[in-house]
Design a protein around this nucleic acid. Structure first.
Lengths: 164, 164
DNA sequence: CAAGATTGATAGGTCAATCTTG
DNA sequence: CAAGATTGACCTATCAATCTTG
């Protein structure tokens, strides 16, 4: 039974509090391990993966921003850094000359591949191992539902990107 | 069935991805509404609440840092701002003169109380309404378990603070 | 020396304004 | 004018170094 119009109850309040703090703890621990292993961090990984999965390994700046839930200026500066590190390249879009494509480079792809075993193990150690398969299923259903139903309030594309 | 030593499977990977993105979306939406209503943001709210719930409405700087999962220098600068806004006051600790107490002011308490109705409604609208009571229960159990079992890896006190 | 708090340098993010193109 | 990207001004968090106290 959902409670769309009811007041927030104690159970949902505790669920919300646990979302905030568990996110903080888990991402800090995972980022620490990625750093120790000398591979890219969570945020960069997400960008590289999004590009790798996209057709022709390229996405418009705005589409990346929607995916990782960052501002337009934020993705400009993040792309600056990644381009400077040789992980992606900017490419003019011939269809709409206002848009700029970010294209994954071979180095970008190999860096993502190098990071994945470390990242996968960290997700398992700090997150996955604490839950049953059924619990994982519930988390994905509920939190995924929130994204698909609320993300369009921020930007229409966020919902789309989550599905991939 | 937990999978402590197994490799990360697809289900848990999707659960993790949904944690990252739902946290981003939900906190951005809630913070936007708090800002529009002219009340304190999520981070500040958490500090004020922690102080209000503490004995004599005071906590040492480090204890606040552990609670909200922020660095030591971070809490120093956050406390600077809150003190400047009159929401808390610094007070020397007579027992251990290395420590500094942050004490909640009457204005700090009233600002938290003024923010709560807005915050509560936002949590319900962007988070609570999307789940059943049973799902909320599972979220709290799983994510809370992660915090109590992993937080001590960061700092012993984080686990403690989560229970309140 | 270790713990608690602070500070300087730095990294990374947002908002508002601007430029270019549709 | 609206959309995409960028830039400048600004805000906030972290790390390393420092200071004080146990």
């Amino acid at each position: 039974m959902y409670n769309p119009y009811m007041a927030l109850d104690e159970q949902r309040k505790k669920a919300y509090a646990s979302l905030l703090i568990s996110h903080s703890v888990v991402t800090k621990l995972i980022d620490r391990r990625l750093k120790e292993a000398g591979v890219v961090g969570i945020e960069v990984y997400d960008v590289l993966l999004a590009l790798e999965e996209a057709p022709e390994q390229r996405l418009r700046m705005s589409d990346i921003a929607d995916r990782i839930v960052i501002s337009r200026s934020g993705i400009t500066r993040l792309a600056d850094r990644l381009a400077h590190e040789g992980l992606l390249e900017r490419l003019a879009c011939p269809m709409d000359r206002r848009s700029i494509y970010a294209v994954l480079t071979p180095k970008g792809m190999s860096e993502r591949e190098r990071a994945w075993p470390v990242y996968r193990q960290a997700i398992q150690d700090y997150f996955g191992r604490h839950m049953t398969s059924e619990e994982a299923q519930v988390l994905y259903q509920v939190l995924g539902r929130i994204v698909t139903e609320e993300a369009e309030t921020i930007t229409p594309a966020t919902c789309e990107s989550f599905k991939s």
